[in-house]
Design a protein around this nucleic acid. Structure first.
Ligand SMILES: [Mn+2]
Ligand SMILES: [Mn+2]
Ligand SMILES: [Zn+2]
Ligand SMILES: [Zn+2]
Lengths: 141, 141
DNA sequence: GTCAGATTTGATAATGGATATCATTATCAA
DNA sequence: TTGATAATGATATCCATTATCAAATCTGAC
């Protein structure tokens, strides 16, 4: 199912409404291959749609996260960032602390070991988050 | 080197001063085997030392983190938590989203796979953070 | 021990991102 | 078309963290 369908199915299921603002914001979110904060997305939205307010952007991002179209990413700098999941499977992040570059990483082996650890402790896992901080190849010299 | 020595060596190296408040706060931090927020630690400190203010607790926690005696732990709920490193090696966290219970996990295998991944991407790692959220054995039924 | 200069403290104000409020506008089933 | 209700946008509020600043404390030099 594509991201748009997923979002509107969620909206309908929750008794919410299809609005021009949600449509426009969703379009911009899906076109953005970055980890954006509400403010950054608001700035992007403003370029095309001057009439859309910050609060609506913020609320729509929350809705996108609740619907599963977006994921909240928190690198611990006090800002919530969002990334859409369309065409992206689960992944973790490598973050360069100098230039801010973010690389997406995935390892089946890693996921399996995590699952084993969780089971060993009698937990049922719902989600996990691995952030690795360091210097990217350009910044490390 | 014990935690106290480590802290005071840091304090001296930075040209900072040895004060009663820092001493008292450090003692309470070292006696606390939890992941405490500034507010929670302030409450603990208040029980013994009514005269110590919140700002001092907050500042001292930052200092403890800078000195390496404590580590900042952020479970994404908008509050910084701190844990002292005395007698604890590196570890990651399993967090029960129902009761808030936190289990500490460690796997050499996991760490090695992470290192490999980081190298593959040309990064130099400085730190990492793995948080696994789910339900603990008591809450999962 | 005393002193001067610098740091620290505690109360409180400021900050900033997220969320709540509320009057107005838009959506949508009937 | 219309009434009920949700959504919007401007702004206020929240809340954890950080900054401010006068008073208190620390520390090395004497
Ligand atoms: Mn990502
Ligand atoms: Mn821990
Ligand atoms: Zn970099
Ligand atoms: Zn639990």
């Amino acid at each position: 199912m594509d991201a748009r369908t997923k979002f509107y199915q969620f909206v309908e299921r929750q008794g919410l409404r299809h609005t021009g603002q949600r449509e426009k914001i969703l379009t911009i979110v899906l076109a953005t291959e970055k980890h954006v904060s509400a403010q950054e997305l608001y700035d992007l939205v403003q370029k095309k749609h001057k009439e859309i307010g910050y609060a609506t952007v913020s609320r729509t991002l929350k809705l996108l996260a609740d619907s599963g179209v977006c994921r909240i990413v928190d690198f611990g700098d006090g800002v919530h960032r969002y990334e859409h999941q369309y065409g992206h499977g689960h992944h973790d992040h490598l973050i360069c602390t100098k230039c801010g570059m973010v690389a997406e990483i995935y390892s089946e082996e890693l996921e399996e070991i995590q699952s084993k650890l969780v089971k060993k402790h009698g937990f049922v896992q719902t989600r996990h988050k691995l952030d690795i901080f360091g210097l990217c190849s350009k910044c490390k010299t």
